[in-house]
Design a protein around this nucleic acid. Structure first.
Length: 202
DNA sequence: AGCACGATTAACT
DNA sequence: GTTAATCGTGCTC
């Protein structure tokens, strides 16, 4: 059976300005297929990391083994490990060879909630996918899920279109957790989230 | 080979 | 509000 070509966001969606991709991902459904079962959540928070000039972006170090996927074509996963214990999920954006990505920071749980709770070792949905490390744990996304093609049918990770949001439903702020990142990058308005949505991280 | 740091979280006081 | 957990990565020696 042939899959519906509209089921997954196409590569052209990701091959655009990263801040616009981050904004437009709000409301879309992130889907992870695990053992034939769908785990899914509505994206409610995302951040843009844009190029070698952006000193908050890992590409500030240039092309290395870690950042290599960001220099490839858009629509691929960039999964990295940090703080000695956490995995973060990004989607590569812009044209090939321009390093940029969107960090998926929080989801409103929709499908496979019991399995996600089991993977997190907890009950209840309020904290299930509220934060970038929580959602990767809930969806079993780790090193093996780096460099997967979101646009290819065989991939176990993809994004489906969501309802069109009104501009008034979207909030914009500086990115979170940037530590010592200097200005102007520290204050760039590249975090997008749904206003008053309880699943957005703090 | 050694070092400082990190796009965070949970468990504290 | 503060802090420990815990290790890959990129940089310096």
């Amino acid at each position: 059976m042939r899959s519906d070509p509209l089921t997954r966001l196409p590569r052209s969606f990701f091959s655009r300005r990263t801040d616009l991709v981050a904004r437009d991902l709000l409301g879309c459904l992130l889907v992870r297929e695990l053992d034939g079962t769908r785990l899914a959540g509505r994206i409610v928070e995302a951040e843009a990391y844009i190029g070698e000039e952006d000193l908050a972006c890992h590409a500030k170090a240039g092309r290395t083994r870690r950042t290599d996927v960001m220099y490839g074509p858009p629509g691929f996963s960039y999964v990295y490990f940090t703080y000695g214990m956490h995995w973060m999920l990004n989607v590569v954006t812009e044209k090939k060879s321009f390093p940029a990505a969107v960090l998926i920071r929080a989801l409103e749980p929709v499908e496979g909630i019991e399995i996600m709770c089991s993977l997190r070792g907890m009950n209840g949905i309020s904290l299930l996918c509220k934060g970038p490390a929580r959602l990767t744990q809930a969806m079993a996304i780790r090193k093996a899920e780096n460099s997967l093609d979101f646009c290819q049918k065989a991939s176990s990770l993809w994004i489906e279109p969501g309802i069109k949001l009104r501009a008034t439903e979207i909030a914009i702020s500086a990115r979170i957790g940037l530590g010592n990142t200097p200005e102007p990058w520290f204050s760039k308005p590249w975090r997008f989230y749904l206003k008053e949505n309880p699943f957005v991280s703090k």
